[in-house]
């Protein structure tokens, strides 16, 4: 198993225009643009990070906010290790959607998917419509960590991703350990997305890459 090369898949979910794309661009490329084109369906980014002593490759899927695109979105998050549920601190409606996302995610990915609720646009203090207590309450109710960030200034962005990655890595290691245990009893483990890059040897063949189920 590729223990040396660890990959984690993160997915960003949330209403349109809350700043998902801007968050990812800030985190991965330290960029910010006022008018970011709308994301249709999903966009992909990656970043190498160090979590503890381990090099981790984060694959980040930034999804579309408009509901019309949601039908096909499980393609992107069905094998996610963690999800960042982004809402706009100046728009309380966007927080409401977070609960719906969690239900959908847990159905498809499993109850133990790592969750982080992220309140974006913290720089717009005057326009703030969601008190911290309220969003913390929502996060706690769904078993998620809570971070407030600003994709504009960058405040909190690193911490939100780093915390998510740390917890996702811990989850993956638990899962791999469980998979190893299962492998000992003869059946091959089924790791998460990272498994798609693992090699599984079959008798008489070279290493073959396993296709992910989607």
């Amino acid at each position: 198993m590729s223990r040396n090369r660890t990959s984690l898949k993160l997915v960003l979910l949330g209403e349109g225009r809350v700043g998902k794309t801007s968050l990812v661009l800030k985190y991965c490329h330290s960029q910010f643009a006022e008018e970011q084109r709308a994301t249709e369906q999903a966009a992909f980014n990656s970043k190498q990070v160090t979590v503890g002593e381990r090099q981790v490759e984060l694959s980040i899927w930034d999804t579309a906010g408009q509901e019309r695109f949601h039908a096909i979105q499980p393609l992107y998050y069905r094998d996610a290790d963690a999800a960042l549920l982004v809402f706009d601190l100046t728009d309380s409606d966007t927080l409401e959607r977070v609960r719906a996302w969690v239900t959908e995610l847990q159905t498809l990915v499993g109850a133990d998917v790592v969750l982080t609720v992220v309140g974006n646009k913290a720089d717009l203090a005057a326009a703030r419509a969601v008190p911290a207590a309220e969003s913390r309450g929502v996060a706690a109710a769904v078993g998620a960590a809570y971070h407030e960030v600003s994709a504009l200034t960058g405040a909190g962005v690193e911490a939100a991703f780093a915390d998510t990655a740390r917890r996702a890595l811990a989850r993956q290691q638990r899962r791999l350990a469980a998979a190893d245990a299962a492998q000992l009893s003869a059946s091959p483990g089924v790791p998460s997305w990272a498994g798609g890059r693992d090699t599984v040897s079959f008798t008489g063949q070279g290493p073959t890459r396993r296709r992910p189920c989607c």
Partner: peptide, 8 residues
């Protein structure tokens, strides 16, 4: 945004 619209 401030109109208390339903999210979607």
């Amino acid at each position: 945004r401030g109109c208390k619209l339903p999210g979607t």
